[in-house]
């Protein structure tokens, strides 16, 4: 399996996309540092990029990669190699390279400008989101044989989690605003990895004081170690469940 990972990894690096991605993240992080000297504000601005761009890049890159390495997968499946190994190698190589790009692109500027206490949660949420959306993209890739359809499904995941879901929550909150909704919204948030990441980050910053009673309630929950552990476990579940589902489908697929 390590040999497979090595080959897929070198194939990914050859397209140079990962280099561009790293450079883009690096440049925007440095730019935010230049604009503002307050770490909190830098993190807040970066957060918006991370929540939109990281999932988008992850889904699009993964689906394109999966279909362009279809020949490789086909070739390997005629060799004495377990299908599970082929699939997991693809995942490890794709997720690994995207995570590496993110960690370097965002992490290095923080080291250059002095690491605040925010950098660890920012890195952790970004990496988790990468893993989650790479899993979702693999799932959409094995669901269909058509590349355009797969990218469509993957983008739908992104669109849903980044935009539609928030609208849904807002609707719930406005419709039922006579009732205490804290626990319900908290549960609903667990169904969206992007929101989960956003709230983890926001509560690391001090602005949660501005969010009133709900903010205080969340702070109480996500601020505690148990809450943080819980939310990161949910994020990891969001990575593992679609991946296992995709693996099951891939194992039964005709190549």
């Amino acid at each position: 399996m390590t040999r497979l990972v090595k080959y897929i990894f070198s194939d990914i690096l050859r397209t140079r996309f990962i280099v561009f991605y790293t450079f883009f993240l690096f440049a925007s992080t440095v730019a935010f540092f230049q604009l503002d000297s307050d770490f909190g504000k830098v993190v807040l601005s970066l957060l918006n990029i991370v929540l939109m761009v990281v999932p988008l890049v992850s889904v699009v890159f993964t689906t394109i990669h999966f279909f362009s390495s279809y020949e490789f997968i086909e070739l390997m499946s005629a060799q004495p190699i377990n299908r599970r190994s082929i699939f997991m190698s693809e995942y490890v190589a794709v997720a690994g390279s995207l995570c590496m790009a993110y960690a370097t692109g965002v992490g290095v500027p923080f080291l250059m400008f002095g690491a605040g206490s925010y950098v660890l949660p920012l890195l952790a949420t970004g990496l988790c989101l990468t893993l989650v959306f790479v899993s979702l993209a693999f799932l959409s890739s094995v669901l269909t044989r058509d590349k355009a359809k797969a990218i469509g499904i993957a983008l739908l995941f992104w669109f849903y989690f980044s935009l539609l879901f928030d609208g849904l929550i807002l609707w719930v909150v406005y419709t039922f605003n006579d009732y205490p909704l804290e626990k319900i919204t908290l549960t609903l948030i667990a169904f969206n990895p992007v929101d989960l990441a956003r709230i983890i980050m926001l509560l690391q910053l001090d602005i949660s004081a501005l969010m009133g009673y709900t903010g205080a309630f969340y702070k109480n929950f996500f601020g505690s170690h148990a809450g943080l552990l819980f939310s990161f476990s949910i994020l990891l579940l969001w990575a593992i469940v679609p991946l296992m589902l995709a693996l099951r489908i891939f194992n039964r697929k005709d190549l």
């Binding site: 020949e71 490789f72 086909e74 070739l75 005629a78 004495p80 190699i81 377990n82």
Partner: peptide, 18 residues
């Protein structure tokens, strides 16, 4: 998958990493 060690396969249309 281990049995494939014993098979040499030549596909009709060879598709390889381009």
């Amino acid at each position: 998958w281990r049995y494939r060690e014993n098979i040499g396969y030549m596909p009709q249309i060879g598709r390889y990493p381009e």
